[in-house]
Nucleic acid binder design. Structure first.
Length: 278
DNA sequence: CGCATTTCCTGGAGGC
DNA sequence: TGCCTCCAGGAAATGC
């Protein structure tokens, strides 16, 4: 489940490897992973130069010249890897884009197909599912901005997961940050006091930065762009640790359900301080 | 407005 | 071993 740190890891590798290179042949074996018209993909992309690869929210954005953008969302099980041309092609590889003069290609694989690709060429109005608006990036967020964004009568975790509110957090890093901040996920977001808000924002940033340094968390599908696994799962303190002792206080980590998601908490470190919204 | 539920999809886990 | 059911979850849609 690639979230901000996983996508950031992929993007840094792709940017380092691909900037300045030109795209070659495009092979799309599953048209329905493309939102909008899939034809421009193979028609308009070859020969464009890669200006750079960056991230916005959980999206990988490849900037091209002449001006175009290739946007990937990895959903649950999406992988974006740079492979040797002759490497065996894994099942569910939906898109392959050769890199000129490199003996390598970019492959997009996504068994569950919750992910997708957008090809933005600035041409006719984009049809199909649009890229939704997303909220501010968490890493540059100031405490003032964070408090403003969080000042709503909603379950805290549901709010943090909402990409329109803050961009990039998913189930793993929400649980890790809430645990690190010692805040219960069902806390009413607008009831956080100054100290809690500060702790939570710091925990979010610290967790994301550490995860980026570890190349993200690999549970099942996620891989870095070079195919290797991330290692931050070894440092998780809450996520997927139900039944195991809290690394802070030894209390057994519990699994509950919040916002329709499995949620892992330490019932001692994360006390429910205020009534959740109706 | 918020929130629970459903939908999409596949592979892996667990039951028998 | 093999079949079956259940379940994970990002994001959007639906119903209350």
């Amino acid at each position: 489940m690639p979230e901000l740190p996983e996508v950031e890891t992929i993007v840094r590798q792709l940017d380092a490897e691909l900037s300045g290179k030109r795209l070659g042949q495009v092979r799309l074996s599953r048209k329905d992973i493309v939102h909008g018209d899939p034809r421009p993909l193979s028609r308009l992309l070859p020969d464009r130069r890669i200006e750079g690869v960056h991230r916005r929210a959980k999206r990988v954005i490849i900037d091209l010249r002449p001006r175009a953008q290739l946007v990937f969302h990895l959903g649950m099980s999406g992988r974006l890897t740079l492979c040797a041309l002759d490497a065996s092609v894994e099942k569910h590889t939906h898109l392959r884009i050769a890199i000129r003069n490199a003996d390598r290609e970019l492959r997009f694989r996504d068994p569950r197909r919750f992910g997708g690709v957008w090809c933005l060429t600035g041409g006719p109005k984009h049809k199909g599912r649009k890229l939704g608006e997303v909220g501010p990036e968490p890493l540059p967020l100031t405490l003032r901005q964070f408090k403003a964004v969080v000042a709503r009568p909603r379950q805290l975790k549901a709010l943090l997961l909402d990409q329109r509110v803050i961009a990039g957090l998913g189930n793993i890093y929400c649980d890790e940050a809430l645990h690190a901040a010692g805040v219960h996920p069902l806390t009413r977001a607008d009831s956080l006091d100054e100290a809690q808000a500060r702790r939570l924002l710091r925990a979010i940033k610290a967790t994301l930065r550490k995860a980026i340094r570890s190349g993200g968390s690999t549970f099942a599908d996620y891989r870095r762009a070079d195919g290797r696994a991330g290692s931050y799962q070894k440092h998780h303190r809450a996520y997927h640790r139900d039944g195991q002792p809290c690394r802070t206080c030894g209390t057994t980590i519990q699994r509950i359900n919040v916002a329709g998601r499995s949620t892992f908490i330490c019932p001692r470190c994360q006390q429910e301080v205020s009534k959740p919204p109706s």
